[in-house]
């Protein structure tokens, strides 16, 4: 059920946790675990979409921009309906006015967030499937488009979302488990189920393994790929919703490196960059690796920017190990 690569990454996670906990025991407290889990949620949702796409041999590097755009679209709609504006003074955003009609505002905002994510996923999918644009290039273009729209809509200001979203979902805990963590856990279980148990997962792996084999088996590869991009877009929309629910403000610029973390986590976890292999739980452990590094470095007083350096190095090392193993396996076959 758990691939060997996932096991090794889980072991590295434990070692890193032990090293950081030795320097700051708070990491091993319930609060430490909650922090790591909550900080993992958004990247994990993006990584789940990336895992599926990588399994099919495709990329979406616009998922971070999608997250940012979805959160800004949702907040803009909610501000418009709720009669609120946001101004920035000395670089700090302030909400002007109070949200009205919350019973209407919040469902509309949630729907807008998800629809925005799904639409961007659909646009990516159509570019790749209908116009046959390489997925890396198509989503690079869409990244720029989405960022542009995000800054046009927000005016470069972090928009204020209703605090009721925080109390009702973002900061809500049920039986001690934060609600956003539950959403991410459900998404992981769903990913595992789809990949391990259903024909959708098997066909995804088949088209990543050998696209021509899938075509000749009579599978509508284009439609399947479109669905995968829509799923990745939808998950970015959910991540956007969680973002504004946790912080009550949008922060689109903070998610520009999220696709790197998401794709790196999937690959570090054992999902093949060239398609055909998916490690669902490996992706979870890969995401935890990035979060433990981030939280651990911050607790050590080291700038979290070093996290990017470390993740990049880990990614290169892991991929080179996998490539060596793959070449040896092929030579031995």
């Amino acid at each position: 059920m758990i691939r060997r690569s996932a096991f090794w990454v889980a072991l590295i996670d434990l070692v890193l946790l032990a090293v950081f906990a030795a320097m700051n025991p708070v990491l091993l407290s319930i609060q430490g675990a909650r922090t790591i889990a909550l900080d993992s949620v958004e990247v994990l949702l993006l990584a789940i979409g990336s895992t599926l796409l990588l399994g099919a041999g495709k990329f979406d590097i616009s998922i971070g921009a999608n997250l940012g755009l979805s959160s800004v679209v949702a907040t803009s709609v909610m501000q418009h309906v709720g009669g609120v504006t946001t101004i920035a003074q000395y670089g700090v955003s302030h909400q002007v006015g109070t949200y009205h009609h919350l019973a209407l505002v919040i469902p509309i905002g949630v729907a807008a967030c998800l629809v925005s994510g799904l639409l961007m996923g659909t646009a990516n999918g159509l570019l790749v499937v209908r116009l046959r644009v390489n997925s890396l290039i198509a989503t690079l273009g869409m990244l720029s488009v989405a960022e542009g729209i995000t800054f046009v809509l927000s005016g470069g200001v972090n928009l204020a979302a209703p605090t009721e979203l925080q109390s009702g979902f973002g900061l809500l805990s049920i039986a001690g488990i934060p609600a956003p963590v539950m959403v991410a856990a459900a998404a992981v279980v769903l990913l595992w189920f789809v990949v391990a148990k259903t024909s959708f997962g098997m066909r995804t792996l088949a088209m990543g393994s050998e696209p021509e084999a899938a075509v000749r088996a009579g599978i509508d590869v284009g439609r399947h790929q479109l669905v995968l991009f829509v799923i990745a877009g939808g998950l970015a929309g959910v991540a956007g919703l969680i973002d504004i629910s946790r912080f009550a403000f949008t922060n689109a610029a903070a998610h520009l490196t999220d696709p790197l973390a998401a794709i790196a986590a999937a690959v570090i976890g054992g999902t093949a960059l060239s398609g055909g292999i998916i490690s669902s739980f490996g992706t979870v452990f890969g995401v935890l690796l990035t979060t433990i590094l981030e939280v651990g470095l911050v607790l050590m007083g080291v700038s979290s920017y070093y996290q990017l350096v470390v993740i990049g190095v880990v990614l290169i090392v892991v991929v080179s190990i996998y490539e060596t193993r793959r070449r040896r396996a092929e030579a031995g076959a």
Binding site: M202, L205, A206, A213, A214, A217
Partner: peptide, 26 residues
Amino acid sequence: QAVYQDLSLAPHLMVLENMFLGHELY
């Protein structure tokens, strides 16, 4: 049915999965 020169098998999939690709049993 045709057997192409490149075989058109998905190398990462198991034998049984290749056999039923596009004709899966549920």
